[in-house]
Amino acid sequence: MSKATTVTKLKKQENLIGYLFASPWLFGLIVLGIFPIFMSLFFSFTNYNMISAPTIVGFKNYEILFTNDDLFWKSLGNTIYHVVIAVPLGIVVGVGLALLLNNKIRGMGVYRTLFYLPNVVSVVAMTLLWLWLFQPNFGLINELFKPLYDLFDMEPLGWYLDQKLSKLTLILMGLWTAGGSMVIYLAAMQDIPVTLYESAEIDGAGWLKKTIYITLPLMTPSIFFNFIMGLIGSFQVFTIAYIMTSGGPSRSTYYYAYYLFDKMMIDKAMGMASAMAWILLVMVLIVTIFALRLNKYVFYLGDES
C-alpha cells in the first residue's frame, strides 16, 4: 500500500466518522426540523390566519413589508440600535465579572452564586423590581443619583419612560443577567494551562500583564462564541421589552421580534409574520457570516502547531 492511498483512505474514513459523530444532530435536523422550517417558509408566501387554510399570495407579504409598512422599518431600526450597543457591552461586563470572580479568595463560591442569582429569579419578580428601581419619580436609582443631579443642575433621568433613554435602560437591565455569559467565561478560564501563568510569573509578570497576554487571548474562543450568540440573540430581542415597556414609550422599544410576535398573535397574520421571520433569518445570516471572519483573530490552543 502506497502512502498516498493510505492518506486518502484516512481522509475518507475521517469524512465518514465526521458524519457519524454529527449524525444524531443531523438526523434531528432533517427528520424533525425540516417540516416545520419548510412550512414556515411556505406560510410566508400565503395569507394565513391560523384558523382557515392558507391562501397563496406570492411575494405580496415581502413586497408590503419593504414598501408600505412604517413599523417594519421603525422596529428594525430599534433592533439595530439595540444590537450595536448591547452586544459589545454584554461582552465587556461578562468578561469583567468573570475576571473579578476568578480570584482565589475565600467564599468565592458564594459570591459567584449570588452574582448568578438574577438568572434564576422569577421573571415577574425581576420585572416588578426593575420598574420600581428605575421609576423616574420615586425609584431607588434616581434617589441615589439625586446629589449628582443637583450638582449638575439637571433634570432627573426618565429611564424607561423617556423615549431617548428607554432602549439603553432595557440594555442596562439586561446586564443584570450577565451572570449567564460569566459562567461560560469562567469555564473557559479553567482551560488555560497553569504552566503558562507559572512561566509568566517567573518572568515577573503581574496580574495585569498575565490578564492581557494570557487570559484574554486564550478566552477569545468563548468571547467569539458570546459575540456570535449575542448577535443572533440580540436581533431577536423581545421578552424584556414585552414585559417592561410594552414596546413604548412612543414605540421606542418596539423591536423587530416584538412586531413579528404582534403580527402573529394580535393581527393573526401568520403569513406576514413568517415573511418577517425569513427576512430576519437572511439578515442575521449575512451579518453572522461577516462576523465569522473574525474567527481568524481567535486563538485556539488546539490549532497551534
Binding site: 435536523l29 416545520p36 422550517i37 443572533i232 421580534a257 413579528l260 410576535f261 433569518l281 453572522t288
Partner: peptide, 17 residues
C-alpha cells in the same frame, strides 16, 4: 452555518407546524 441559522428563525413561526 446551517446549525447557526437554525437559531436565527424565531421559534413562534414554527410552533404550529
Amino acid at each position: 452555518i446551517v446549525m447557526l441559522a437554525t437559531m436565527m428563525l424565531p421559534i413562534q413561526v414554527i410552533l404550529i407546524p
